[in-house]
Amino acid sequence: MNQNIVVDPPYFKNVQPNAKYVGSDTCASCHTDHAKNFEKSAHARIELKGVEGVHGTTCESCHGPGSLHVAGGGDKTKILTLKKDNESCFQCHIDQKAQFNLQYHHPIQEGKMTCTSCHDPHGPDAKPWSAVSIRGTNDVCVSCHRDKKGPFTWEHEALSSSCTECHNPHGSIHPKLLVQNDLNLCLKCHVQPNWPTVGKRSHSAFAPRGNCWSAGCHTQVHGSNFDDHLRY
């Protein structure tokens, strides 16, 4: 590898120290489907023109230099396969790496999930929700947390916005990966000018007992089949 080229994530040195870049056209000759669909992906933006000799701006910017993989007839042990490896993602997505080291996190570091468990780096929905995804906003989350999917008789509109309104899916210092860990989580949407009234009911006696969901009241925050105030 040319050690003067900054697009080389240092991590590659430890993985395939003797490999060289071959260019994404070489990758496309075998991986036709991925190459064709890659242009729809947000990652297609990282392809840079005019960097001759530096081929790691598309496929190899994540998978590492591919010469040994090509020479090995597609030997999977000679290329970074990101289904089992997250360090390549973390070379650019630094803050997510720090989040996965927090107290409450999805088990990426423990090897029970990988970035590709939720994200499709090649496809049009690298972030697994958008206005045009064929699947729903929260489908990635409910593939494991099916009990939160619903439908529920009484729905909580926050979920139609996204699970990430309340949870940080990578990691948090708060339990249940919450973004906020007290009344502010709910008040950011539900506060009124006449707080501590919510709706028409004063909550001044309830707030000291605990949080909206922990104080024995609105426990079914994802949706309830039986109570319009999400209490049961």
Binding site: I173, V179, D182, A207
Partner: peptide
């Protein structure tokens, strides 16, 4: 690797005279 996060949630309840709920900080 060093990561610094300064994050705050502010609601009008923070300045409420009857039941003030301070702004929530998620710094780490």
């Amino acid at each position: 690797t060093l990561a610094f996060n300064k994050i705050q949630t502010q609601t009008p309840a923070g300045g409420n005279a009857t039941l003030p709920i301070p702004y929530f900080n998620s710094d780490y």
